[in-house]
Computed example of a mutant assay.
Amino acid sequence: MKSKPDPVRLDAWDVRILSEVQSDGRISKSELAKRVHLSASACSERLRILQAAGIIEGFYARLSPALTGGVIFVMVEVVLDRHRLENQRHFETAIQQIPEILDCWAIGGRIDYLMRVSSPSMAAYQDFMEGLLQAGLGIDQYYSLVVTKPVKSNSPIPLSALRQR
């Protein structure tokens, strides 16, 4: 059984750094140090520690779906045909290799997983899902929810609770 990592103790400086890099991942180290009121070397060291601890998982560019060729997003609720640990592991391992599945969360309740899938069209999405069903991943049922427009997405994690520790 995989143990949960010990939480890293964050102080006010760390929270300020995380807040800044969450809102601007391209910020230079010198500008970051200025904004959080630390020396460049102290700020760089804290940033390195936050990355090494896995708190900062990476830096990404957010692309515009409309300007990159038109993409639709579908939220897919998945129910597996068997609810044994090896079936879950098989499914989870397989979907890691499928680039169209942007996100996947294990869910407690009436469904087993919720996935966010990208596709160039509804016809391509249907072909994609038929391929998933034939791939032997143990999918018993799936329900598609087509995203008609984004209302709020890619929001930063609220760090206010960290400041109270």
Rank of each mutant, 00 (worst) to 15 (best):
P120G: 12
K29I: 00
Q22K: 09
R82C: 05
R26V: 01
Q97M: 00
L32M: 03
P99F: 01
F128P: 06
V36G: 06
A40W: 05
A52E: 13
E77Y: 10
D11M: 06
N154V: 02
G131I: 00
G25T: 11
L63G: 09
L145W: 04
A124W: 05
E130Q: 09
S160W: 04
Y142R: 14
I98L: 02
F59Q: 11
Y142T: 05
I139L: 07
L63Q: 12
A53Q: 14
L47Q: 03
E86H: 15
E45C: 00
G25C: 12
S23M: 04
Q51A: 14
L32P: 12
D103F: 06
S3H: 11
R82F: 05
T68K: 04
E45N: 02
E77H: 14
Q164F: 03
F59S: 13
E31N: 11
A66E: 11
S119P: 13
L63D: 09
R46T: 00
Y143M: 10
A12Q: 09
M122Q: 12
L137S: 10
K29G: 13
Y143G: 13
L132N: 08
F91N: 04
L114M: 11
L137Q: 06
L67W: 06
Y142L: 13
S28C: 08
V146F: 07
L114Q: 11
V71A: 12
R116L: 12
R84E: 12
G54Y: 14
P7M: 05
L32N: 10
R84F: 09
R82W: 02
L32K: 06
